[in-house]
């Protein structure tokens, strides 16, 4: 099914609202990056007092430093033409100040804090956790959808049931279990509970239910073992759902901060979002710093997502060819 036959007009009518919605959806993300690069407390020669562009409402749509840098560059060139060296160097200094102030929170994060360590911690926790989640949940989801065995529906409903108790009340018992297993202040305290979530199994089960059973039966007749069937038939077919789960699980692990703060005491062991919290002042957190932290946290997930994108398409072709 494609829209080719419906003509250009119909297509345009479709694209415009979709693009509009996409832009609305993307705005907060865009705003995070712009604010992280916004010019704070700056004064040029025409201003009476310093101005901050960071907290302006409505928000500025682009980093104001660009405009300011441009105008200073212009003035510097004019001054050079007139041979006014003093003015030229003044404007050159202003240009430097604009750049420095634009990136001030980035240089603070990368020079004065453990942000690189936190990034590394989070990356490997999220990758390990995601790998385990996707593997175990696909295995479990597959048998829950396609195998008959006693206790099947019990496990299914148990999985659904546990999601209905809010995390807020299970924090304390989870904390106790982590201590009981002597995992406190280690990364396992973050990874293992991350592997225990219910939603992934449920997701994979729902996805597998829709996969035609005939395909699996055919593989059985070929005499393939269970594990081989799983590896060669189930996994390729489930690729789109696995990709989705891989992304959900990664984003979840990446963004969680309260649990790491609770189970990790050593600040060098913290995850990124948790570590960034330890830099926020008590009463008034700096907007620019907050947004810079959010931007630094968002970039790796965005890269991860874009890398994973192709598996959505891959799943589609495999599923199509096989039948």
């Amino acid at each position: 099914m494609s829209y080719a036959q419906r003509g250009r007009l119909g297509r345009m009518l479709l694209y415009i609202p979709l693009v509009g919605l996409a832009l609305i959806a993307l705005f907060p993300l865009y705003w995070v990056f712009v604010t992280s690069l916004q010019l704070p407390s700056y004064q040029n020669e025409e201003m009476e007092s310093p101005v901050s562009y960071v907290e302006s409402v409505p928000p500025k749509l682009y980093p104001y430093g660009i405009t300011e840098y441009w105008s200073q560059w212009d003035k510097k060139r004019d001054a050079e033409k007139l041979g006014d060296e003093q003015a030229a160097s003044f404007h050159a200094e202003k240009m430097q100040e604009v750049v420095a102030k634009t990136f001030t929170t980035y240089s603070y994060l990368f020079k004065s804090t453990d942000v690189l360590k936190w990034l590394w911690n989070t990356t490997y926790i999220a990758i390990l956790g995601t790998f385990g989640t996707v593997l175990f949940d696909t295995m479990a989801g597959y048998v829950l959808a396609k195998k008959q065995f006693p206790g099947r529906m019990l496990v299914f409903w148990l999985i659904i049931a546990t999601m209905m108790i809010p995390d807020q009340v299970t924090l304390v018992p989870s904390f106790m279990i982590v201590r009981l297993l002597d995992l406190f202040d280690t990364h396992w305290a973050v990874i293992l509970p991350g592997l225990a979530g219910a939603f992934g199994v449920f997701l994979m089960r729902q996805f597998m239910i829709a996969v035609p059973s005939e395909l699996l039966e055919a593989a059985k007749i070929d005499g393939a073992g269970e594990w081989r069937t799983f590896r060669t038939i189930v996994i390729p077919m489930a690729a789109p759902a696995m990709a989705a789960l891989g992304i959900f699980s990664f984003v979840g692990l990446w963004n969680s901060f309260l649990w790491p703060i609770i189970v990790i005491n050593d600040s060098k062991m913290l995850t990124l979002t948790a570590g960034l919290k330890t830099l926020q002042d008590a009463n008034l957190s700096s907007f620019k710093l907050l947004m810079t932290g959010a931007a630094v946290a968002a970039v790796p997930i965005m890269i991860y997502f874009l890398l994973f994108q192709r598996y959505f398409v891959k799943g589609l072709t495999v599923g199509g060819v096989k039948e």
Binding site: F175, I261, I262, S267, K277, D281
Partner: peptide, 23 residues
């Protein structure tokens, strides 16, 4: 002395879980 760098905003939550969890 082990200093635990704790965010002000999450200090109370962390403390309450830790007390209820016995640590």
């Amino acid at each position: 002395i082990k200093i635990v760098q704790t965010p002000w905003a999450e200090m109370e939550d962390k403390l309450n879980v830790s007390i209820a969890g016995g640590a």
